[in-house]
Design a binder for these strands. Sequence first.
DNA 1: GTCAAACTTGACAATTGTGTCAAGAATGAT
DNA 2: ATCATTCTTGACACAATTGTCAAGTTTGAC
Lengths: 192, 192
Amino acid sequence: MVGVRQFDEDAVIATALDVFWRKGLHDATMQDLAEATGVQRGSLYNAYGDKEAMFLRAFDRYTGQFLEAAGNALAQGDTAAGLRHFFDMIIVNMTDGSPPRGCLTTRTALDAAISSADVRQRVQDVLTRLEQLIGKALGTAPGKRSAADANRLARVIVTYTRGLAVMERAGYSRKQLRDLAATFIDAVVANA
Amino acid sequence: MVGVRQFDEDAVIATALDVFWRKGLHDATMQDLAEATGVQRGSLYNAYGDKEAMFLRAFDRYTGQFLEAAGNALAQGDTAAGLRHFFDMIIVNMTDGSPPRGCLTTRTALDAAISSADVRQRVQDVLTRLEQLIGKALGTAPGKRSAADANRLARVIVTYTRGLAVMERAGYSRKQLRDLAATFIDAVVANA
DNA sequence: GTCAAACTTGACAATTGTGTCAAGAATGAT
DNA sequence: ATCATTCTTGACACAATTGTCAAGTTTGAC
């Protein structure tokens, strides 16, 4: 190996994730990425191909972190407690930063109509895997709920998390989102 | 009046709404609007000022229609039936067209981080007014629910509609969205 | 030390979009 | 018929972005 790469690829992708998270796939430019990473545009093209390739790498990193955190949160305490931790986690996730960065998956889903099939697929994958995580958490509760019901409910919960992400973008505060989550959990889960 | 405008402003805004609905504020170009309306770019600038001004007019038209339809749907039958009609309406609204156009408000909310304060305000206004409509519909149910609870629940329902809009963009079909709505209504409203 | 491979750099071409403007065309009022 | 006003048209200037590339630089291997 000669002419060795002069930057840490992992660090670049981590920084790129931050840029995409703040600006979105569509609005983040290679210029933005170059400035944020300190690597010249040409080098980024050389190393990754194009913007979408960089996005896919960054998004994979994001979903890995996200799904792991979701699984951990859901595993804390009983089903209801797990859900509360889960909602807490995603609300912090989307209201973090200044200004808050929102939910990258949701933003990407709405960009996705104009994105590649690859991007759309990743979005679907995250949602599916999240649904499975939640379904599993619901399924472990003692009896009372059929597996089919747990899966239906899991999808409803995923849908609600998407709703929270939109509300965040519409200007609702972390506190308001927490209220929304609490009311939802009380209504849907307590008696399920 | 001399040198009379050679196009129907109302028809232009209606067509512009369709363009914005399909492409979003950010991705619809003046070129798109000119082609769709058959009015030259220059004339559109002359008549409306800029793209955002056209969007605001189109969006106002949209929200007027939308909120009226929502009110009508909610008024049909008892509270539960009204909600079912309401969800039916919004699901048809977002899955209509080929390809489906999705929910303009939600798309705009996610664009809004990069839009003007005017645009953001409109989005908040629609959501607030929708919440009020739903709160009123819930409030008319006989006793059992305090006004405060009705308002909290109304906001939860608005949030869920936003979630459905995201799921639609993620690729869920009209049928799947209807399932999601039915499960939600059963869980949240039946026992509330 | 020399070399070849790989990376870096800055410039370039092409595209797309916005907003402006001067010249021209159309029209109701007189 | 003429005119002043308003709208229309096409061209223009400007800016942002993408993706490419040739020339230059670096570095490990020999």
